[in-house]
Structure formats: C-alpha cells, structure tokens
C-alpha cells in the first residue's frame, strides 16, 4: 500500500533523467518577467516620449534668437524674443554657487570624515542635520532666503541672494558625495602616510583628496546641475518678472532659465508655450550634459582598490 503512494507523490524519481529534460512551462514566471520588463519600458517610454514632445514643441524656437534676444512680456514682440537674460543669469548664479558651495561642502565632508570623532554627540548631530537638510523641500530654502538673506541681511532680491540660497540647497549633495568618495580611500593609505611622519592635513591633502577627486567631481557636477534646474526657491525670492537686461554684478536683479520658463508658462498665449519649450530644451541640454559628464567621470575614473 505504501509503495504506490510514494511513487505518486514523487513521480520524477521513477525516471529522473527524463524529468530533467522536460522543460516545465511556468506561466506565472513568464508573466512576472514580462510585467517587470513592462515597468521598465513604460518608465523609459513615457520619459522619452515627453522629452521628445518638448523638443518638437519648441523646435521652431531652437535658433540663435534663444540666446541673442531678451524675454518680453508683449505678445507682439514674441517673434524677436529669447531668453538671453535668463541664460546669463543662470551662468552668473551657477558660477557663484560653485564658488560658495563647493569649498564649504568639500571642507565639511573632510571635517566629518577625517577630523570629527563620530562618537561625539555634536558630530552625530551634524551628520543627522545634513541628512535632514538633504530632504528639506526646496521652497523652504526660498523662505530662508526671503526671511534671513534678502530681508534680515538686507541683500535683497539679487544675484547673490539667489546664489547663496541655491548653495545652501545643494550643499548636502556635495557633502554626501564627497564623504563617500573620501570614505572609499583605503585606511592603509592614511596609515602609511602617518607612519612616515606626515601631519593630518598633509595626509588629507596629498593622499586622500587626490584619490577622491573623481567622486568629488561627480558629486559637485550633480549638485550644480540640480541648482541650475531649481525654480521653487527663486519664485519665493521674487524672480518672477520679465527682466530684459543681463545681470552686471552681485547686487543686480536677475532672472534664470527655470524661472523664465515658469514665467512663460503662466502666460496663457500659446506662443509663450512654444518659447517655454525652446527654453526647456536649452535648460535640459545644459543639465543633462552636466549629469552625463558627472556619471561618465564616476564610472570611468572610479578607483577600485
């Protein structure tokens, strides 16, 4: 009685060889795989389609007018309008962000990785603070700029205010990326340097930082590219107007590409949408080019120890 029971529950064992060659079809398995693949295709498909649509929409505006002409609030002048002041404003702001944010971010990361004793409560607080800042909505940074930098410090709605606010906004990005790059430098390199009588700063500046350069560069470029695309804090900082001149100093009024795009969008006339699309293509070209460089640098120069 028992023998037949066994053979029915384990049919394969009666003929093990042939059981292995029978490829069992598993419909659930295939459906799952296709579903996952579909997710990926949808993600890419939709994003690509939307970007392509923007390109088509802005096609008529993709010429030299975009960077040689100024924006205008008059529909009648739209034909000879561009976004020069916004492009120049963006370049001003981003150069200042690089000058302000990168040294502070890289120095903070060096402090946290090489100097700070992570058992101390204040260093742990510092770390948590940075992680939290990374997740604070950008518009809150706009409020910081409005309340403290523009009004209390009296810097007003100027290029420098915008640059400071965006610097603080992307500071956590630089810090976190730099820390990771520094952490990837093996401890043995530091020990070898110390054992030769090098000081801490000699060790950091001559051994650790040179090895961490690719990671730091990647993080810095990504941070700058994020700052280029940010509009929300600048809205709060009163940048939503038609500015028809290029900034000429730190205390100059300004506009910037994402803010200019927003201003075009808020106009109801269809011609503005076309100009907005053209400006978006310009913005995307800058941002995506920067990100590509960053990702390339990371993948190409990343050191494997």
């Amino acid at each position: 009685m028992s023998a037949p029971t066994i053979t029915t529950t384990r049919p394969e064992h009666s003929a093990p060889g042939s059981a292995l060659t029978q490829r069992r079809s598993r419909p659930g398995e295939l459906a799952f795989r296709l579903a996952m693949q579909a997710c990926l295709l949808i993600a890419f498909g939709v994003l690509t389609a939307l970007l392509a649509w923007v390109l088509v929409k802005g096609w008529n505006r993709l010429d030299s007018r975009l960077w040689t002409e100024m924006p205008t609030g008059l529909v009648s002048r739209l034909d000879t309008a561009g976004v020069q002041s916004a492009l120049v404003g963006t370049l001003w702001i981003i150069s200042l962000v690089a000058v302000i944010c990168l040294p502070i971010g890289i120095f903070s990361a060096i402090y946290l990785e090489e100097y700070a004793d992570s058992n101390r409560w204040y260093n742990r607080l510092l770390e948590l603070n940075i992680q939290n800042l990374a997740g604070v909505p950008s518009i809150i940074f706009g409020i910081l700029g409005l309340g403290i930098i523009a009004r209390t410090l009296g810097l007003g709605f100027t290029v420098i205010t915008a640059a400071i606010v965006l610097s603080l906004l992307v500071l956590p990005v630089v810090i976190i990326a730099t820390r990771e790059a520094i952490r990837a430098v093996p401890q043995s390199i530091r020990q070898a340097s110390y054992a030769l009588g090098a000081t801490k700063w000699q060790t950091v500046s001559r051994q650790v930082l040179p090895s961490a350069v690719p990671g730091i560069a990647t993080g810095s470029i990504l941070a700058l590219s994020r700052a280029i695309g940010e509009a929300a804090p600048l809205i709060v900082l009163g940048a939503v107007t038609f500015i028809t001149f290029n900034p000429d100093g730190l205390d100059s009024r300004y506009t910037a590409l994402p803010i200019q795009i927003y201003t075009f969008i808020t106009r109801s006339q269809a011609e503005y949408a076309e100009l907005a699309a053209g400006a978006i293509v310009l913005l995307l070209a800058i941002v995506l080019a920067m990100n590509s460089i960053a990702i390339f640098v990371r993948n190409r120069f990343e050191k494997r120890w």
Partner: peptide, 25 residues
C-alpha cells in the same frame, strides 16, 4: 547602459514636468 540613463533622468528639472503636465498630458 540603463542604470546611468535612469540616474540622468532623475536630474530633469521639475519645471519641465510641470510644463509637460499642463501642455501635453
């Protein structure tokens, strides 16, 4: 190939999505 492209797409400015939502979607 795809992982870097995904990271690249994560960097598209949000004003672009707003524009696309209003005028295309």
């Amino acid at each position: 190939v795809l992982k870097p492209i995904i990271e690249l797409l994560a960097g598209v400015p949000t004003v672009v999505y707003g524009f696309v939502a209003l005028f295309a979607l």
